[in-house]
Nucleic acid binder design. Structure first.
Length: 420
RNA sequence: GUGGGCGUAGCUCAGUUGGUUAGAGCGUCUGGUUGUGGCCCAGAAGGUCAUGGGUUCAAAUCCCAUCGUUCACCCCA
């Protein structure tokens, strides 16, 4: 048997209504904030990701689906969306058409990692990006959008964490401080953290190993060593979050794994999804557009994992969607009326009604069971004496009430009955 | 890439210290008297016990390998 590739999942008809529900909320809230949807290709030139996310990051160095196409170009399935959005922004000079552009997306992403709860190789993210303004209000706005979406889904157990990474210059100064602080403790660090000491020292804060955290006690914090501008920016973000009633925690250890972040970073976590607890991650990336060859364009954005969100919703039992139902199921009483039943269904469908019937020549009883399973509001019986007089029996499945209707007035009768 | 758990019907799972024909619930199908659902009742279909090898008179059960899956680490959404 051929099975779906490891780390990929079929979304079956039985679960699709939960996805539609989620997608509708996402579209609704982004639209309230006047964000426009953007769709970029699922694959891009490989170099785009190295240059934006960072060559040394885990995503680029070991998780990308990269292959050569027939023209010998190196292609990569997108592991995240920001790079593609910024590429499109530059390519189509979107910044030249309007000074600030607010975009959102819903799209599959691909990363070749070992699958686990809340982590797939093909997974789905939605996210928002605001390009063209350095206003801290936008940082807060994106936090608000993601938070409001999660809240609209009924999620309760959420924590918003924010931090500021400052600008590269102040960050470099700080790294020196941290390096000095840790220098004589280096040999006591875990193996991973010793590696981080050289590659990305900030990430040592992420370590889950207790002895590492012990060694970090009393370490200088990035947040206490910000440059003046970043500090002011962070103050406004916090102030505005307070004004719009978003509860948050400052987490000086929140260091995100993508190279392009500057100033604000944030995360929303839920304890209800296993160990992959981040539902949302994002931050400001003021230098990325320029780095990719565009004009300097301050920007901020976030991404959010839809599978993780649905896991959280499931474990909190935060919303339920009602079963699909149809308006009318047509039961064929006499076998020779098969064609007429199809014809009648087809007319009703063209009148905008949800109609179905049996294609398997099943018994009347079986047809009724089927009607019941598809939650039909009405059942129409076609056959016998009534049919000769161009009449049919219409049964209300909820009340059990049944009446005779003229076949040529069927659609109006049904439409009126359904209004009630 | 590293480590642990688990692979029995479409799904969720039983299966005793190895012992005849591998079970249940749900789901599916057919019936329960002429042309009417849910509830109930009767019956049926559906299994290379993941795959391959080994131990044994005898393996779903014990051992090994492979594959799959799952959870965790790293990292991330």
């Amino acid at each position: 048997m051929i099975k779906a590739i490891r780390g990929t999942k079929d979304i079956l008809p039985s679960e699709i209504s939960r996805w539609h529900y989620l997608e509708n909320i996402i579209k609704q809230i982004f639209s309230n904030f006047n964000y426009k949807e953007i769709r970029t290709p699922v694959f891009e030139e490989t170099t785009l990701f190295g240059r934006s996310i960072g060559e040394e990051t885990d995503i680029v160095s070991k998780e990308m689906y990269t292959f050569k196409d027939k023209g010998d170009t190196s292609i990569t399935l997108k592991p995240e969306m920001t790079a593609g959005v910024v590429r499109a922004f530059i390519e189509h000079s979107l910044g030249g058409q309007q000074p600030l552009i607010k975009l959102y997306y819903i799209s599959p992403m691909f990363r070749q990692e070992r699958p686990q709860a809340g982590r797939l190789r093909q997974f789905h993210q939605f996210g928002g990006e605001a390009l063209g303004s350095s206003s801290p209000v936008l940082d807060a706005e994106l936090i608000q959008i993601s938070y409001d979406i999660l809240k609209s889904l009924g999620l309760k157990d959420l924590t918003v964490k924010i931090n500021s990474l400052g600008v590269p210059e102040s960050r470099e100064d700080y790294k020196k401080l941290l390096r000095e602080f840790l220098l004589n403790k280096k040999d006591k660090l875990s193996e991973d953290s010793r590696k981080r000491f050289d590659t990305n020292i900030l990430r040592i804060f992420d370590s889950k190993i207790e002895s590492d955290q012990e060694l970090l006690k009393g370490a200088p914090l990035l947040i206490d060593n910000l440059d003046g501008e970043s500090e002011n920016h962070f103050e406004v973000v916090k102030e505005y979050l307070d004004k719009i009633s978003i509860p948050f925690e400052i987490d000086p250890k929140l260091v995100r794994g993508l190279d392009y972040y500057t100033k604000t970073t944030f995360e929303i976590i839920s304890k209800k999804v296993g160990s992959q607890s981040a539902l949302v991650g994002g931050g400001r990336y003021d230098l990325l557009a320029e780095q990719l060859g565009g004009k300097p364009t301050p920007a901020v954005g976030f991404a959010s994992g839809m599978e993780r969100i649905l896991l959280a919703c499931e474990s909190e039992n935060s919303f339920s969607v009602k079963d699909d139902n149809i308006d009318v199921y047509i039961v064929r009483i006499d076998e020779e009326l098969e064609m007429f039943v199809s014809e009648t269904a087809s007319k009703l469908r063209r009148s905008g009604l949800k109609a179905d019937y049996d294609y398997l020549k099943r018994s009347v009883k079986a047809q009724m069971r089927e009607a019941n399973k598809s939650n039909a509001k009405f059942v129409l019986f076609i056959g016998g004496e009534e049919y000769k007089n161009k009449m049919a029996n219409l049964k209300n499945m909820e009340t059990g009430e049944q009446r005779s209707v003229q076949l040529d007035k069927l659609d109006t009768v049904l439409i009126n009955s359904l209004k009630r």
